[in-house]
Design a protein around this nucleic acid. Sequence first.
DNA 1: CGGCATCCCCGCAGATACTG
DNA 2: CAGTATCTGCGGGGATGCCG
Lengths: 123, 123
Amino acid sequence: MAQAKAIEAPPVEGGNNATDRCPMIDFVNLVSGKWAIPILYRLIVTGCPIRFGELQRAVAPITQKELTRQLRLFEHRGLVYRKVYAEMPPRVEYEITPMGRTLRGTLDSLADWMRVNASHLIT
Amino acid sequence: MAQAKAIEAPPVEGGNNATDRCPMIDFVNLVSGKWAIPILYRLIVTGCPIRFGELQRAVAPITQKELTRQLRLFEHRGLVYRKVYAEMPPRVEYEITPMGRTLRGTLDSLADWMRVNASHLIT
DNA sequence: CGGCATCCCCGCAGATACTG
DNA sequence: CAGTATCTGCGGGGATGCCG
């Protein structure tokens, strides 16, 4: 099931893109960076549209630049919706997409593991 | 470093150590870097001692330097055993620890998600 | 308020060569 | 074969300032 015989990667026909290896590499490429997972997880547990500023406070101390960058990446990859309201002052809301939501179980598991083992790990 | 201020850390009951924030941040700190998760996962699915060279081939195309660095980090954190044989030529074997092994379910889930969704994701 | 633009630092990570 | 040393770059990501 979750086996990965990476070494002798069977030659995939056609111009398969870079996702021919271990799925872990794909995952790291997808959520690389210090803030990607925390942002995603926040959007998932929130579950409803959330404003930029509120999100930033929730994932503090991230900078606006980085939060914007990551959100744009997620939007481009179909993990996050972005909704702009033509108001004054401006309002922008972000929300996890159904596909993004399917990460919930995995990320919960991850968070649980971390909560259990954080105290045993040397920093 | 990423210390800054604990903006609005909700008071957690009991003795509260350095891991007072979102466990996701701890996780990213633990396995930051391009190769950490692939290496760890490889050691987990292998399940038995594996030589340095073989591990490197399995997680190709990682460099020796990076593989050494990550393995040392994992060893220091109690996720990986390191066993040196006084032979000629030298032989060093690495193995996942029981604590590291407990990550299996989480990482399997992660890999499964990636396999399912890789094709839907814009690179 | 959201989000570009700019400047800049530092550490991940690659390439290469050398040692026991 | 495993590991170290050195050089190098690239980009993540922080700080600040301006604009609609």
